[in-house]
Write a protein that binds this DNA or RNA. Structure first.
Length: 815
DNA sequence: TGATCCCGCCAACGT
DNA sequence: ACGTTGGCGGGATCA
């Protein structure tokens, strides 16, 4: 092993060993070796090398290079030579060599060694040295693979050279957790931002905007995000791993989050790289840095591809084709069902967002959620404000870094154990209780954390076991595993859910916007614009009836959002907001700013840490990027955008009466914070909506994932009018919301809607059994500092979660 | 060419 | 001191 492990240099030191090594598998490494390096004929392998080199020119060249650079290389070469020897065709190999050596292939080999679903009882230990030897690849590569696997909690480090193999047992939990965190981090929004920027660049928009946007993003802490752990598993590992960074792991998680959060579930490399870089968003990131990030992403992508979680695809954009990856792994159900929403996309139905279910923290949570949802991203800062923002950001960072590292709430459960089925079911409730209790205790920080945790739990009830089941093995074992998961979620929901009751439950909440209020509100802040009406207004139920109606009527936009994706809704919202921006931008900005401030304040008051993002808001005005932001990925064509924009203004007219059905998720994410207001809780604030870019994105995506564009535009159009409620300035925000609602919620919501009025309890929502795990999920942590955002942002996730969990609560609240 | 990404130097970290 | 990890980026391959 020794040989393998160490890099070339080492190898050089012990060339003999290397050669000697059994190495077993000729397969893997192709020989690079080639001619004799002039320099050292003496090596034992030299002969081989020569042979090989003769065989394959490529190898030769390589070796030559190496030799030039070092002698040490020889050793390696020697190895290769041997291997090749063994293999035989150097030639072919040389050709394939690269491919054969690919990380993906190595990963396949690696994975082949272990069952997807190892029996829980047995511990599968992985000895890196052994693996390296057996598979015959460089140690360094193993680290790459293991790091990614670790990020998915498929393995955990036990000790120095040892890892425990968990297989896919934890995968669903992990994905849920990641999704939550991703939502919290507003990745959706970020993605949109980036896209917008890109778009702008294309058009040669002025740099300011882009810069601003970038900054806003930059502010996002996600970059700082720490490794997301599952309760049981990672800890152990944690003890062992001390390595500070874990950047590859973290990157991997973030990368996965991007998939889980985006509706189409397609992430282009460049966007991912930018988001992961996060830090400097200004301008164009360092080119070199960007490049490096891309390289890393490829590494990660290769492993994820081997896991069949993603696959390469290409997305064609205006500019051309871009490499991207599509999620092919199990779907993670946040709470609601995203999928449903997506399906329904075009139809509009209103759903009522569940008001915030939880009594207690609801407000706090909401605030948190709101923030995140608000996602600075949506808004652009005024240039003058940038400085302030920066300073704020700095402060925020400090703050974040400190205290709030995410605490695992864990209650008792061991997530790891896949075997909890029966117990698991119970767990949820337990967890909830526990959580609540804990939260109280911890109140401040902890509250936040717990919330986030809860949210996480809720939101992701689990990955859907769906079945894509990439891997064969999985199925059998999964079941047990899955079940537990299903159970958990419920429990969680109660806690976090507070905010949103179950949205999808179909309850159709209708939120009415009072035109008058809206106006007034708008002036204040966007958030206010929409006020949730009490149940009575429920009219929103209608939403189900016909999207069309809503659209037509403009006055009422139902927002149903299927409970699931807040993000989606957000996206729509964002779009809307963007669009509206023009005319009323300023007003909106102000209002938003105000709202934001309020939110922030609340948020702060509620909890100390939280997101930095919040801080941003206060600083400046966030200008809704609105409309034209092409950012939306989905493809808004420019035309569409333009159309949208134009439409927007007109929309004013429509006063809305409307009820805006909001999905729980939406509410959570965006609204809650804003809402201070009504008893119902549910208030939606346009601003909030707008704020949550993520939602909008998701929305867009969901609706059309790929094709979304058209729908969107249409939707937007509709929505805009609806938005009209808002005074000129304000308008934008509202629109977004509406849009979301209409689009997303429709299908499922409808069912929910039956219960129109109040938030219904979760009537139907029968989502899935996911829950059980959710409880366990609580355990997951999100990284501390960065997490803060997550906690805050929980919105999208939270909403989902909430919706699920909260349904019960909803009932309570409804009236 | 640009997209991929292998390779391995070398610096943290542990022990 | 030495071994383990793993960030990082040059530059080779591939398409």
């Amino acid at each position: 092993r020794s040989v393998l492990k160490t890099p070339l240099k080492q190898a050089a030191t012990s060339p003999v060993l290397t050669e000697i090594q059994p190495d077993c598998q000729p397969l893997t490494t192709p020989p690079k070796p080639k001619e004799i390096p002039p320099a050292d004929p003496w090596t034992p392998t030299s002969n081989l090398k020569m042979l090989i080199s003769a065989a394959s020119p490529e190898i030769r060249s390589r070796e030559q290079r190496r030799e030039l650079s070092n002698d040490t290389s020889e050793v390696l070469q020697a190895k290769h030579c041997l291997q090749e020897h063994l293999l035989g065709d150097e030639y072919e190999k040389s050709q394939r060599s690269r491919k054969e050596k690919s990380l993906g292939l190595l990963c396949h080999k690696f994975l082949a060694r272990y069952p997807d679903y190892p029996s829980t009882t047995e511990n599968n230990y992985i000895c890196l040295d052994e693996v390296a030897e057996e598979l015959n690849f460089e140690r360094r590569r193993i680290y790459d693979i293991v790091n990614v696997l670790e990020s998915l909690h498929m393995v955990s480090r036990l000790a120095k050279n040892k890892y425990a193999w968990h297989g896919r047992h934890n995968l669903s939990k992990t994905l849920e957790a990641l999704k939550k965190v991703g939502e919290e981090n507003k990745y959706t929004q970020q993605i949109q931002m980036i896209k917008k920027r890109q778009y702008e660049h294309e058009f040669d928009f002025d740099g300011e905007r882009n810069e601003e946007m970038a900054r806003s993003f930059g502010s996002n802490d996600h970059s700082e995000m720490s490794f997301v752990e599952l309760p049981g598993i990672e800890f152990r590992a944690a003890s062992v791993n001390s390595r500070k960074d874990k950047s590859l792991r973290v990157m991997s998680q973030k990368f996965v989050m991007l998939f889980l959060v985006s509706s189409p579930q397609i992430v282009s490399l460049d966007v991912a790289a930018k988001i992961l870089i996060g830090e400097d968003q200004f301008e164009d990131v360092d080119k070199s840095k960007f490049k490096t990030k891309i390289r890393r992403l490829y590494d990660i992508a290769n492993v994820l591809s081997s896991l069949e979680l993603i696959k390469k695809v290409h997305v064609t954009e205006e500019r051309g084709r871009k490499p991207a990856f599509k999620w092919t792994g199990p779907e993670v159900l946040p709470n609601t069902q995203d999928t449903k929403l997506e399906e329904t996309t075009s139809t509009t139905s209103t759903t009522c967002p569940p008001p915030i279910s939880e009594s207690i923290p609801s407000t706090e949570q909401c605030s948190k959620n709101l923030f995140p949802s608000n996602g600075k991203q949506n808004f652009t800062r005024h240039p003058s404000l940038i400085k302030l923002v920066k300073t704020i950001e700095n402060d925020r960072r400090k703050i974040q870094s400190a205290p709030t590292s995410p605490v695992k709430i864990s209650t008792s459960t061991d997530q790891n154990l896949s075997a909890f089925p029966s117990k698991m079911a119970q767990v949820p409730a337990m967890a909830n209780h526990q959580l609540e209790g804990q939260s109280k205790k911890r109140k401040e920080l902890k509250k936040k954390l717990s919330r986030s945790a809860l949210a996480c739990n809720l939101s992701s009830p689990e990955v859907v076991p769906k079945a894509k089941a990439p891997r064969t093995a999985a199925p059998s074992q999964q079941p047990a595993f899955m079940q537990p998961l299903g159970v958990c979620p419920p429990s969680h929901s109660p806690v976090s859910p507070v905010i949103l009751p179950h949205t999808h439950s179909g309850v159709p909440y209708a939120i009415y916007l009072h035109p008058s209020q809206a106006h007034t509100v708008t002036t204040y802040s966007p958030s206010f614009m929409l006020q949730p009406l009490p149940c009575a207004n429920v009219t929103g139920i209608k939403s189900i009836n016909s999207e069309v109606l809503n659209k037509i009527t403009t006055g009422e936009g139902d927002n149903q959002i299927a409970t699931d994706d807040p993000t989606k809704s957000l996206t729509a919202k964002e779009k809307a907001t963007l669009k509206s921006e023009n005319s009323s931008q300023r007003c909106l900005k102000r209002t938003q700013a105000l709202q934001e401030n309020n939110l922030i304040k609340r948020y702060r008051s509620d909890e100390e840490s939280l997101d930095t993002s919040l801080t941003f808001f206060p600083s400046g005005y966030l200008i809704p990027l609105t409309q034209c932001t092409h950012g939306n990925k989905a493809g808004f064509s420019d035309k569409e955008k333009a159309g949208i924009c134009s439409l927007q203004h007109p929309t004013y007219s429509s006063p809305i009466a409307g009820v805006i059905p909001v999905t729980a998720s939406d509410l959570k994410a965006v609204n809650i914070p804003a809402f201070h207001i009504t008893p119902l809780n549910i208030m939606l604030s346009p601003t909030s909506i707008a704020a949550a870019p993520g939602l909008s994105n998701s929305f867009l995506n969901s609706s059309n994932t790929s094709s979304a564009q058209n729908p969107r535009s249409s939707v937007l159009n509709f929505t805009l009018p609806h938005v009209g409620l808002i005074p000129g300035g304000v308008q934008v925000p509202a629109n977004p919301v509406l849009h979301h609602v209409s689009v997303s919620s429709q299908t499922e919501n409808i069912s929910q809607s039956s219960g129109n009025r109040n938030l219904q309890k979760k009537p139907s929502v029968p989502k899935e059994p996911q829950e059980p795990q959710a409880a366990t999920e609580n355990f997951f942590r999100t990284p501390g500092g960065p997490n803060t955002e997550s906690s805050l942002s929980a919105n999208s996730d939270g909403t989902k979660r909430i919706s699920e969990g909260t349904q019960q609560k909803l009932e309570v609240y409804e009236d």
